[in-house]
Amino acid sequence: MASATTIGHTTYGKTKSGDEVLLYTFTNRNGMVMKVINFGAAITSINVPNAKGRLTDVVLGFDSIEGYESNPPYFGVTVGRVANRTEGGKFIIAGETYQLSINDSPRANHLHGGFKGFSKVVWKSEIKDDKVVLTYVSPDGEEGYPGQLTTHCTYQLTDDNAVVINFNATTTKSTPVNMCNHSYFNLSGKEKSSISDHSLMINADAYTPVKENLIPTGVLCPVQDTLFDFRHPVVIGDRLDDVGGFDHNFCLNSKQLSDCAARISHPSGLTMEVYTTKPGLQFYSANFLDGMVEGKNKLYYEKHGGLCLETQNYPNAVNVPTFPEVVLHPGQVYAHTTIFKFLSN
């Protein structure tokens, strides 16, 4: 995807430990603007022009670095080494048992890389042509993971209003890797609005049901004749009360990057399509937002105030042999592309 996007950068602030955080601003020829910081390799805003050219910020987030340093909902950040939940924080590789940090209470799981995952560090960053490349070297043993993992996250904004995210990583020891971007979307652009009026399509014939601790049972269940059938557009609010909120992985039918994995639309005419090279997509309807997190413009985000479409491997895959492989070995390269493409009418 060729792009004539311009990129500028400025200081965003300093962390509590005094590290400078940089803000990168992408602007394409349509006037679409994306902002990224190198703390947590996070997307802080995506302003998309509607049919009348008016910009709409479609992601939840904060106004300052202080918010991103705390950030219990993981707004906009890159999560890793392993996104989602690892049951009990344990796994076995080549006969050796590893214990990760436990930061998902009260369920006693490891979540999104632990207490100091990729979302809690300052990444090295640089502009390369029409991209921003962020780099983080995770040391051997960080949060319990084996091996030194050298990781790159690359952001690009194209002139057809697509946000392209590329992850890659190499390791010195065999280790699970499953990174993703954790942006919360609300296409209304209204901070106090629910995603109940959004329509959602997920190109998946099966999903992974979960136990009480939100860990998949290990079985793939057909979506046919269930509340998890999003193969045709469904108004999310029609399902929320019956399910009690979504936080489930869907097993994508898409086999290549050009296949649409998911699509969300808002009555205003704004649509976002999702493309990915990964086999799974976690649909999370912001069930744990509770009106206690102060976001942009000093407003508090309510339950179901946004939604995440996290492209990744299946949750807890390191402990389920039938799930797609999640362990990266020395000499291999982890590669993962996700595209969020915006359309308006």
Rank of each mutant, 00 (worst) to 15 (best):
A2I: 08
A2L: 11
G8R: 13
G13I: 11
T15W: 10
S17N: 13
G18R: 08
E20I: 13
L22I: 14
Y24E: 07
G31P: 09
V33W: 10
I37R: 07
N50D: 15
K52E: 14
K52G: 05
R54C: 03
L55K: 08
L55W: 04
V58A: 11
S64W: 05
S70Q: 15
P73Q: 08
F75Y: 15
V77F: 01
V79K: 04
G80V: 08
V82D: 01
R85G: 02
E87Q: 15
G88L: 11
G88K: 11
A94H: 12
S105T: 14
N109V: 03
H110E: 01
H110W: 03
F118K: 02
F118M: 11
K120S: 07
K124G: 12
E126G: 08
E126M: 02
D129L: 09
V133P: 00
V133R: 10
P139L: 12
P139S: 14
G147L: 06
T150Q: 11
C153G: 01
C153T: 12
T158Y: 09
D159V: 14
D159F: 15
D160Y: 04
A162M: 12
V164P: 03
N166L: 11
N168S: 13
K173C: 13
S174T: 13
T175A: 06
V177G: 03
M179R: 08
C180S: 15
N181I: 01
H182N: 10
S183K: 12
L187V: 10
S188Q: 04
G189K: 05
S193Q: 15
S194E: 14
I195M: 12
S196R: 14
D197H: 07
I202K: 06
N203D: 10
A206Y: 14
A206C: 11
T208Y: 05
T208D: 05
T208I: 01
P209A: 05
K211V: 01
T226A: 06
F228W: 00
D229N: 11
R231V: 03
P233Q: 02
V234S: 01
R239W: 10
D241K: 15
D242M: 14
V243P: 14
G244W: 02
F246Y: 13
H248N: 11
H248P: 00
N249F: 00
C251V: 07
K255N: 01
L257C: 07
C260M: 13
C260T: 13
A262V: 01
I264D: 03
S265M: 13
S265W: 03
T271S: 13
V274W: 06
T276I: 06
T276V: 06
A286P: 05
E294M: 15
G295H: 11
L299I: 07
Y300M: 10
Y301F: 07
E302Y: 10
G305E: 10
C308M: 05
C308N: 11
L309C: 06
N313H: 05
Y314E: 00
N316L: 02
A317D: 01
A317R: 00
N319I: 11
T322Q: 10
T322M: 11
L328A: 05
P330G: 07
P330Q: 09
Q332W: 03
V333Q: 11
V333T: 15
V333P: 01
I339M: 10
I339W: 04
F340A: 13
L343C: 14
